[in-house]
Simulated assay, not measured.
Amino acid sequence: MNGPIEFSVTAVEGGARSGRIVTPHGAIETPAFMPVGTRAAVKAMAPDELWSMGYRMVLANAYHLAIRPGAELIHEMGGVARFMGFPGAVLTDSGGFQAMSLAKINSINEAGIRFRSHLDGAPLMLTPESAIDIQQQLGADIMMALDECTPFPAEHSRALKSLEMTARWAERSLAARKSTTQALFGIIQGSIFEDLRKISAAQITSIAFDGYAAGGLSVGEPKAAMLEMAALSASMMPSDKPRYLMGVGTPSDLLAAIAMGFDMFDCVLPTRNARNGMAFTSTGPVTIKQAAHARDSTPLDSACECRPCRTHSRAYLRHLYLSGEILAARALTEHNLHFFARLMRESRDAIASGNFKAYAMVTAAAWREAEPAVSGDL
């Protein structure tokens, strides 16, 4: 490889595109969804199970791993992928999201983000430089520049100040990188203000990152505003680099974002909602605790070939969930992640065959009503 990663586009249909990202830990076919393994573990799933579903890259969080067990320990253990026993690639978030999600225990200034550990109150200063150092020690295939994830709602002046600091931090993040084998992505901010998104996109894409991300979305803003700002961000990202939409989302959001030209996604929805008894299916969401499933001998999704759908009835899954059995979280999480993996695989196939627009229209139809909201990072 000429750089830390290689990216190629293999097919295009309208704005949608399929491609390939080659990393030191293998190749990822795009569009790709990354399961969230905040603390180097995707909740309720073993790494080999993720691999067997087709996942080739997972996400971990630099802030949480720096707090426990510590970046130095993970470095000693051979890096985060080896530490968790995952044979594929890992992308690490810088900790910028925690500037918003853990706002009560941090303060932000030009130097960086000063945290009090959510575990024991111990101080942690996360700067653009230290965030890169931590991620280099973690051995991530793709690192993220430290940014300030602008909260919603934010006044125009506040969002402008935030994105300008994010741009300065981006320059410092790139200057701090020493590794030649780890990619680094920059993050576009700007809240839901069109002019600010354009300013931030121009600033971040002028910096020679290996890929670019749209951040600060799906943080409480109206759905229409999220989609509008995502599309604007995508339109201003280089076509020869991976485009990453952070923290999104529902099946219809993902399909809409693929149509915009995004390549990479992550979200806690499939795992968190599973633990709360909600399953993603080809006919829409299923809330397993509902009494309607008490004597239902059918699988969660008759169109699904995952292990829970082959072996468990809705009645049994409802029983497990209401009984507080760990198997309920395991089975629903496995099903949901299988659903998201299939959504990406079918999207790639549809783009390659020139049928993505039709595929997305049919697939999203079941998800136009009552889509579940998501927030947070665990």
Rank of each mutant, 00 (worst) to 15 (best):
H293P: 12
A370F: 06
T166H: 01
S235H: 03
P69M: 13
I105P: 05
R172T: 08
N61A: 01
F7D: 08
A44E: 13
R82N: 00
R318V: 12
G277W: 08
S323H: 02
A111E: 13
H338G: 05
M143L: 14
A341T: 05
D147K: 01
L160A: 13
D253S: 04
A256W: 04
H118D: 03
R330N: 13
G190N: 06
V268M: 06
S94D: 08
R272C: 04
P4H: 00
G376D: 11
F280G: 10
N273M: 12
A41L: 11
A256Q: 13
A350D: 03
Q203E: 04
A291R: 05
A175M: 05
T180A: 15
L119K: 02
D266P: 00
V9P: 00
E334M: 14
G19W: 07
G15I: 08
L174F: 09
A111K: 15
A259K: 02
M260C: 07
R197W: 12
Y316S: 00
D133E: 14
A208N: 14
V9C: 10
N106C: 12
A175G: 03
K43G: 04
M1I: 13
D120W: 10
T205L: 12
C309Q: 04
L327C: 05
T333S: 07
P308H: 00
L174Y: 08
T311K: 11
F83T: 00
P238Q: 11
I204S: 01
R330A: 08
N273D: 04
S239A: 15
G211C: 05
A27I: 11
T250S: 15
E194Y: 07
D266R: 02
D48N: 15
H25Y: 10
S117W: 03
A256V: 02
C304A: 13
R172K: 15
S302G: 09
E194S: 14
P251I: 03
I113N: 12
N2H: 09
F209R: 08
D240P: 01
L126N: 08
Y63N: 03
V58H: 09
G216H: 09
G186P: 06
R20K: 14
L73Y: 14
P69L: 13
T205A: 11
F86S: 13
M264T: 06
E228L: 11
S323V: 02
A234Y: 07
F339Q: 00
I187Y: 11
V42H: 02
P69K: 08
G88Y: 02
A89G: 01
T283G: 06
A358K: 14
S18C: 14
E72S: 08
A159F: 03
A329Q: 13
F7C: 06
I67R: 01
A202Y: 08
M260T: 04
A370H: 14
T127P: 02
A202W: 10
V58D: 09
F356D: 15
H319W: 05
R197I: 15
T181C: 11
